[in-house]
């Protein structure tokens, strides 16, 4: 009897405690967790993965709360969708600890069995996600959630990682960015499928929205966004206004998300994104594997000697790298 198998069955059956424990195992990079993910992988690929990124304090958690509420309580005639939320907050680089506070804004979601909220610390990873976020999202996908909302660390910079992971990326900003617009536009216009100006109750909304629209009309890069053949219609990211604390603009936001989903399906971009995400993941894993194999196969003294030769300028770093990797030395057995 194997433990992973039971774990996998319980997770697919929608049991909460086994899911919670699996997420911990995945987060800790424990072998049982990774083995369970292997078995769960055929059950993935169904969930709509939505990334939520943007400057610190712009209202990401408050909006995630509102979006989840709207998906749980749709207008009559539409089915409610189950929602998993992964909220990433930064790990302190000094202590390795973290205070994860995104749940504070999500109290409206308590008591709903169609909601699952998990907080994650970034654990040293840059780019707004934790290293294990991909695996955690896969597990939630396999557990059958219709939508997985991923809130990144608020960094205010282009979070390319989330754009790679998600089918739909929301970039949340607050009004009054002023001159900052110039600084952020390059990054956010590339990753945003939907731009949200939250805190529309604050002054300066109109000028912020106008400025962003103008930049979008100047033409935005389409390669990351539209990995589909030319000739298919382009997706022009809409710029929306919301007041998360008053539930305003949420219906329009959810409608835009649904339009984007439909766009992904009709143009084949859904599959294209899936493929490119898996390709990135695979390449990263291969790199890690190769690196581990290399480390295990090269005697540390050989690395030290080679480094010494570089230090004394006998050979260049480039030559040293060739020396250490070509041909890849045989793996030590055992």
């Amino acid at each position: 009897m194997n433990v992973e198998h039971d774990l996998v069955e319980s997770v697919v059956a929608g049991k909460r405690l086994p899911l919670a424990r699996l997420l911990t195992l995945v987060e800790n990079n424990a072998p049982e967790g990774l083995a369970a993910l292997d078995q769960l992988f055929p059950h993935t690929g169904r969930a709509h993965l939505i990334g939520v990124t943007g400057s610190p304090g712009s209202g990401k958690s408050s909006l995630v709360n509102q979006i989840a509420l709207a998906l749980r309580n749709p207008p009559s005639g539409k089915a409610a969708r189950s929602v998993a939320i992964v909220a990433v907050d930064p790990t302190s680089p000094f202590t390795g600890g973290a205070v994860l506070g995104d749940r504070v804004r999500m109290r409206d979601l308590a008591g709903d069995p169609g909601i699952y909220i998990r907080s994650m610390a970034s654990r040293g990873a840059l780019g707004g996600l934790a290293r294990a976020t991909t695996g955690v999202v896969q597990a939630l996908d396999a557990a059958g959630f219709d939508v997985v909302l991923v809130e990144t660390v608020g960094a205010g910079q282009a979070e390319v990682d989330i754009a790679r992971l998600a089918h739909t990326t929301l970039v949340i900003e607050a009004p009054g960015m002023g001159d900052d617009i110039q600084a952020i536009k390059a990054g956010i216009l590339e990753i945003a499928d939907i731009l949200v100006i939250n805190k529309a109750d604050h002054p300066g909304v109109d000028s912020t929205v106008r400025a962003l629209r103008a930049m979008l009309e100047l033409g935005h890069p389409t390669h990351l966004h539209n990995p589909v053949a030319s000739g298919t219609p382009l997706w022009i990211p809409p710029v929306l206004q919301t007041i998360a604390t008053q539930s305003e603009g949420i219906a329009d936001l959810v409608e835009a998300i649904d339009r984007h989903t439909a766009y992904l399906h009709t143009t084949g971009a859904w599959q294209a994104r899936d493929r490119s995400r898996l390709q990135t993941e695979l390449e990263q894993l291969v790199q890690v594997e190769l690196n581990n194999n290399w480390r295990a196969s090269v005697p540390p003294e050989f690395i030290q000697e080679t480094l010494a030769q570089v230090e004394t300028r006998q050979i260049s770093p480039y030559q040293a790298a060739k020396l250490l990797t070509h041909p890849l030395p045989e793996l030590h057995p055992g």
Binding site: S92, T95, G97, L100, R103, V104, R107, A110, G111, S119
Partner: peptide, 20 residues
């Protein structure tokens, strides 16, 4: 204090019911 000791602390805010 727990964060500074290297732990991951989930803070849920005020007014939680035992169920929450």
């Amino acid at each position: 204090a727990l964060r500074d000791a290297g732990m991951e602390v989930i803070y849920t805010g005020l007014r939680q019911t035992p169920e929450m």
